[in-house]
Every structure is written in C-alpha cells, then in structure tokens.
Amino acid sequence: MNKIFYIFIIFFSLSNHAASLEQQKPAVKHEIHIFIPGLQYRYENDPDQSIKNRRYDNYNLAGLIFQKYLVGLEFNEFEQTTSSGTLSLHAKFQEYNLYIGYNIYSTLLYEPYHIYVDLNPVAYIGQNRATVETKLNSISQQSIGENNLTLGVGLQSSLRIGFMIIQPEIRYMTSRSYEPTYVPVYGVRIGFRIGL
C-alpha cells in the first residue's frame, strides 16, 4: 500500500508542475474518445514458477474536458481454460476501472494532417472479480469470486491523427487478487475522437 501512496504523490506533483508549463492547445475544448477493443498485457505469476505475459482484452471509453482533464472508463477481461483428462477449469477475470488524468504535454507534429502527440499521467480506481467454472466429467460448478478493489497509476501517450487516436500506455496496478499483488500493465488501443 505504501508503494501506491508514494506513486500517487509523484503523480499529483507531476501533474501540478505540468499545469504551469507552456504548451500548444488543441482546437476542441471537449471530446469523447471511443476505442475499439485494444490489447493489454500483464506480467503475472504462473504455476511453473515463471512470470507469464498474459493478454487481456481492453474496452475503453474516455472524455477529454477543457482540453486538459481526462476521465475514462475501461473494462478488462481475461479468460483461460486449463484441463487434464476429464477435469477442466475455465477461469474468467473481469475488471472495471474508472480513471482520471491530466494532459501534461501536447504538441503539434504535422499541421496538414492535424497530427498531435499528448502525454497524460493517469490514476485508476476500480473493481475486479473472477469466476471459475470447474468441470469433472459431467459435473460442473461455477464459483464466483468476491469483488476486489483495484488501484493503479500510469502514463498514456496519444497520437492523434485527425479524428483517429492511437494510444499506447504503461501503468502499475495493484489488487489483492493479483498475482503478484503489484502488476505492470502495457497496452495499446485505437480509437476515434468526437468533438463536443
């Protein structure tokens, strides 16, 4: 928990410092960003003592307010089936996160095609839950896990090409259901900007 506390302090200090920087401002004040399902990778413990890079599906919707403040909602999902003989286990992990961010850097790369690059530190809060379906021959039982709090901080970098956005991100997430408890997360998504 101390790690996340320090990371939040750094995030707010960074955002506060960035707010005083001179920067070019995009033309539209408020936007909605709609993303198609993106890729997300997490490094997690595997039974064979290794750290595996697991691919999650990421669904994301965000809003940019006053050209600087970012609010978004995302849904992450991972499914895995393991089996041996007549036994099989299907595990599904689902996570909803709300995130807020602040635009600390934005620059126009190429005027004719309105290509901009943005940098946004982001903080996440949400909830995750997993379900497991256990099958033994014809016997099946579904188990629903308890809800768990999710916290995280990260950095989103957006490449805006006209109305398109390509957005890679890195972050550090924590939840007591994670293995390990603190997990680095990497992702990339493509979306569209709609000015309001």
Partner: peptide, 12 residues
Amino acid sequence: IRTEKGVHVPAD
C-alpha cells in the same frame, strides 16, 4: 479465487 463464503477455488 476466493468466493464470498471464503472458499478458495483453483483457477488452473
């Protein structure tokens, strides 16, 4: 995973 009843269910 751990259910609301405190039962730990294997995920693999």
